[in-house]
Design a protein around this nucleic acid. Structure first.
Length: 296
DNA sequence: GGTAGACCTGGACGC
DNA sequence: GCGTCCAGGTCTACC
């Protein structure tokens, strides 16, 4: 980190564990995220509204996190960065009601002591939506390859370390023809990403309203499903990232786990997965996400 | 509302 | 090494 670095301290609602957020799902393996397990430091390359690109190092401290940005930031930029990191790590999320309900379930008792429950988010809903589209109908290795291609080809380099880049903006991706995205390895998903980028860039798709508005879960879900490339699974995955936990993201893995857990390995459908977690009400998404599955 | 087929890629498998 | 099959969600067309 350079001597021009900016440092922020951000408090988190307890209980909090940075490693629990970082390891909450596979997002940490997608650029521009990075994680040093030895030091427990989360890294990320972000873009501020002023078009400042800066690398971040985020470390856990006693009551939250310390954030070090590689660039010298104005007061306004520091406030924006604080809001970004608060969103990404869910620092202001109160999960005590979930923990209270989980206390009576042996398969979820582990979440309390380890402060699990927050789910790592990217700095923008656009980035998380693109990444979610790139998880569909492919392997996890395929998702990593596609996201890496987008960042490496179209992301803006970080001035202090040009090898690392921020995730491309809607404007940047909207300027890329779908055929080029297809050739970059996105396959048939290319037009979905291109349409999304164009829609967000020209204001036709208002992702900010889904994140910051006062919409109900069904209203947010309906708007997500209207985006090409977002189906039932992807919409529910995004609802989880948005803090709406009253749906379970049902994919092939979920069916496999529910089959093993409650149906002796017999094939199950969406109905069985849904029924398995309905009793968790507004927390069913988190209950599913952090359930201690019988893997084998 | 439900279903079938197409979309694209990588991995597993058989020859 | 090559060809074939399959898994992974979503879209569109059709019933």
């Amino acid at each position: 980190m350079t001597e021009n670095a900016t440092q922020l301290h951000l408090a988190a609602l307890p209980p909090f564990s940075l490693s629990a957020v970082v390891l909450s799902h596979g997002w940490i393996r997608l650029p521009p995220f990075g994680y040093d397990r030895d030091s427990g430091t989360l890294t990320y390359v972000t873009r501020l509204g002023s078009d400042t690109i800066t690398g971040l190092q985020i470390a856990e401290v006693r009551d939250g996190v310390d954030v070090t940005a590689g660039a010298t930031l104005t007061a306004q930029e520091q406030a924006e960065l604080a809001a970004q990191v608060t969103w990404m790590l869910g620092l202001n999320q109160d999960l005590v009601p979930f923990y209270t309900q989980a206390r009576g379930e042996p398969k979820l008792a582990h979440v309390i002591g380890s402060a699990r429950g927050r789910i790592l988010r990217s700095s923008t809903l656009f980035e998380d939506t693109v990444k979610t589209i790139l998880t569909t109908n492919t392997s996890w290795a395929g998702t990593i390859r596609m996201v890496t291609a987008l960042v490496d080809r179209y992301g803006t380099p970080q001035p202090a370390d040009p090898a690392r880049r921020a995730f491309p903006t809607p404007s940047q991706l909207s300027a890329v023809p779908a055929d080029e995205l297809r050739a970059a390895g996105l396959g048939y998903r290319a037009p979905f990403v291109a349409d999304l980028a164009r829609g967000v860039a020209n204001g036709g798709i208002e992702l900010a309203a889904l994140r910051d508005g006062d919409l109900t879960t069904p209203e947010v879900r309906t708007q997500l499903l209207a985006i090409k490339g977002i189906g039932a699974y992807a919409a529910t995955n995004l609802l989880m990232l948005l803090g709406h936990y009253d749906f379970v993201p049902i994919d092939s893995w979920a069916k496999q786990m529910v089959s093993r857990e409650w149906h002796d390995g017999a094939p199950v459908g969406k109905g069985e997965v849904k029924a398995a977690f309905e009793t968790w009400g507004k927390w069913q998404g988190l209950a599913y996400w952090f359930w201690a599955w019988e893997r084998e």
